[in-house]
Amino acid sequence: MHVIKRPAWALPESAATPEALAFGIDRRRLLAGTGAIAATALLPGAAAAQRIADAPDPTASLYPAGRNPAFTLDRPVTDEQVNLNYNNFYEFGSSKSVARAAQALKLRPWTIAIDGMVEKPFEIGIDDLLKQVSLEERLYRHRCVEAWSMAIPWTGFPMARLVEMAKPLGSAKYVRMETFKDPSVAPGQRQTWYPWPYVEGLTVAEATNDLAFLVTGAYGKPVAKQMGAPLRLAVPWKYGFKSIKSIVRFTFTDKQPKSYWEALQASEYGFWANVNPAVAHPRWSQASERVLGTDERRPTLLFNGYAEQVAGLYAGMEKERLWA
């Protein structure tokens, strides 16, 4: 997004001296040699070690998963290299070139908390979670509020399955999702003007819609770190900033969560963020989109082309600000 008003004293990230040059040492080797590896405790118990090790992915054999033919595209799939090198992941920087920085993210162990208005809060490791779900591949369009788009072969499972596992109370209306917070590996999280950790939210009805998809892979392999490993969300009828990355917590609540971008710039980014070509962003049109990889201009579709599946979610909500 292009909305950040940094204080006058703030240097751009590009001006920062690389750590290796500043200290003249390889920090990782130093830590390994002294045993002084520190990790930020994100959750109780096993999750306290979340950043300590980056063991080989034990789920690699689950990919490629079978493709669900119900989810097709009106355009070619975006080349994998384009997707791997054009990413919004502010935890690792405000440019699109965050792939290298994101490799510092440690993916094992990775524990996810399920809490709030549920029958019984619990924690589950990502590998144990994947043993309880069936993975499938879906072809989805991805539309950024910045007016560019991709077409992606995501692998994962319906978010409705996680909601079923969570057993929310009948009074729970929303799902609040939270990304990891660890400034020791995520340089963007050292920028105090951002409202860390990254938070997003859906209604329970949106979360249980068949299109809402929890992603664990892409392009027939575990999802890359810069794309939101090991667990991210894909809600293809909404602008891409709703598709939270690297999730560590799902909280069921009766209060509408304030999302990261809403907290940062509410006048431009709202809670619902459904795609609508007729409603411009305050600073640019949403009528068309640039397809990454080809630079083709395409007309933007209402609900990003998924109106048939999701428009009913918003019946009677004409007075709500449904668009970003």
Score class of each variant (00 low, 15 high):
residue 284 W to Y: 13
residue 216 T to L: 00
residue 97 S to R: 03
residue 44 P to R: 02
residue 144 C to F: 07
residue 90 Y to A: 10
residue 306 Y to G: 10
residue 164 E to Q: 06
residue 72 T to A: 13
residue 169 L to F: 09
residue 214 L to R: 00
residue 245 K to A: 00
residue 174 Y to N: 09
residue 200 E to N: 15
residue 202 L to G: 02
residue 38 A to T: 08
residue 288 S to M: 06
residue 30 L to Y: 13
residue 7 P to R: 05
residue 151 A to H: 01
residue 159 M to Y: 07
residue 96 K to G: 05
residue 213 F to C: 00
residue 40 T to E: 01
residue 25 I to A: 11
residue 219 Y to L: 02
residue 121 P to A: 04
residue 304 N to H: 10
residue 230 P to R: 07
residue 28 R to S: 08
residue 278 A to N: 11
residue 19 E to R: 06
residue 202 L to F: 12
residue 230 P to Y: 03
residue 321 R to T: 14
residue 185 V to W: 00
residue 11 L to H: 12
residue 293 G to D: 05
residue 161 R to T: 08
residue 125 G to T: 13
residue 144 C to D: 06
residue 102 A to I: 07
residue 185 V to F: 01
residue 290 R to Y: 07
residue 130 L to Q: 12
residue 50 Q to W: 08
residue 214 L to G: 05
residue 170 G to D: 10
residue 110 W to R: 03
residue 8 A to L: 14
residue 113 A to G: 15
residue 110 W to M: 01
residue 218 A to C: 11
residue 203 T to G: 02
residue 64 P to E: 14
residue 268 E to Q: 09
residue 19 E to V: 14
residue 51 R to P: 07
residue 283 R to E: 15
residue 54 D to H: 04
residue 301 L to N: 11
residue 284 W to T: 12
residue 77 V to R: 01
residue 161 R to E: 14
residue 248 V to K: 06
residue 138 R to S: 07
residue 279 V to A: 07
residue 91 E to I: 09
residue 97 S to I: 08
residue 92 F to I: 04
residue 241 F to H: 12
residue 51 R to D: 15
residue 317 M to C: 08
residue 13 E to R: 09
residue 152 I to F: 10
residue 220 G to S: 05
residue 181 K to P: 00
residue 143 R to N: 13
residue 181 K to C: 00
residue 15 A to C: 08
residue 290 R to V: 11
residue 56 P to H: 10
residue 41 A to W: 12
residue 243 S to V: 09
residue 207 A to N: 00
residue 276 N to A: 08
residue 127 D to I: 01
residue 36 A to G: 15
residue 134 S to Y: 09
residue 258 K to H: 14
residue 112 I to A: 07
residue 256 Q to H: 10
residue 180 F to P: 04
residue 8 A to Q: 08
residue 259 S to H: 02
residue 111 T to L: 03
residue 275 V to L: 05
residue 158 P to F: 03
residue 225 K to R: 02
residue 259 S to N: 14
residue 231 L to H: 02
residue 61 S to R: 11
residue 153 P to W: 01
residue 85 N to W: 04
residue 240 G to L: 08
residue 285 S to T: 14
residue 218 A to N: 03
residue 43 L to K: 03
residue 74 D to V: 06
residue 253 T to N: 03
residue 190 R to T: 10
residue 309 Q to Y: 14
residue 307 A to H: 05
residue 38 A to H: 09
residue 33 G to K: 13
residue 37 I to S: 08
residue 289 E to A: 02
residue 17 T to L: 15
residue 3 V to L: 13
residue 89 F to Y: 15
residue 286 Q to N: 10
residue 246 S to V: 11
residue 51 R to W: 07
residue 321 R to I: 08
residue 268 E to C: 05
residue 320 E to S: 12
residue 290 R to Q: 13
residue 310 V to E: 02
residue 16 A to Y: 15
residue 313 L to N: 06
residue 196 W to E: 04
